[in-house]
Amino acid sequence: MGNEFVQFSLTPMLIGTLAAVACALPGNFLLLRRQALIGDAISHVVLPGIVVAFLLTGAVAAIPMLLGAAGAAVVAVIVIEAIKRLGRIEPGAAMGVTFTSLFAGGVLLLEQSDTSSVHLDVEHALMGNLESLIWFKARGWGSLLDPVALAALPDELGRIAAVCALVIALTVLFWRPLKISTFDEGFAQAQGLPVGLIGFGLVGVAAVAAVAAFDAVGSIIVIAMFICPPAAARLMTNRLERQVGWSVVFAVASAVLGYVLAGYGPLWFGGQNAVSAAGMIAVVSGLILGLACLVGPHRARVGARGEAA
């Protein structure tokens, strides 16, 4: 059991967990800024990004594709902002116009180019392939101390771990400016904080997290992890510090439970094949949010909302 677990389940589970946490952290602030759907927009434009990177480099290599995806996310964010300001269009509609158009462009490029020989398709982009990120060389827990085996860990694990660490470090470092500009933008500006830059930086970090997570686990988890754990966490507490803590707990729980249910759940029902782990992780995060909506201690709006005296 131990050997098999380390070889086949440990790394996917770790990657899923790190991806979930990296997305959930910026998700908290996006949620409070009413920008929750920017995660949705970013994860849709990842596809055109990797297709363009593939067409430019002619190879399916991880780094150029990550850069392409990150570039597409930045382009999308700028276009959304430009449409909002220049066209005086409400944010939701501006987002909808942008990400659907870019996504359509990505699909068309993919159809037009000869990608039949390489493993690059839309379903993979959406659903990821968490199950395939196994640790071939592992021979049990002892491999954790074996340099040869460690060198054969999937690249995705190193990348998502680095991004997750980056996200955590940035969240800690910029905690105060983030909190103050999210709560009261005018006050932050009057103090001389660059609120525009902070907002853009937040979306940028979200994009980096989304791209790295997408690489490992596909778009669905990305959207689900941006929104579901922070939303459920908001219903558990009335303090930002604790909300962020809860969101990490929920993200980890979704990733671990979702992976286990996808891998072993069908066996309990007499099936033989595992189901999509990415999909199941999203479903579990939704169930957690559903529970929080039903019984979360701070689920309802209360008190004066700025008008009543």
Partner: peptide, 24 residues
């Protein structure tokens, strides 16, 4: 400079307590 914005300019549903706001 200390600036006190209009009360309606923020979302009071923000997860913070009274002392959190003052500490800002």
């Amino acid at each position: 400079i200390a600036y006190v914005p209009q009360r309606a300019s923020v979302d009071w549903d923000f997860p913070a307590t009274v002392i959190d706001v003052v500490l800002m």
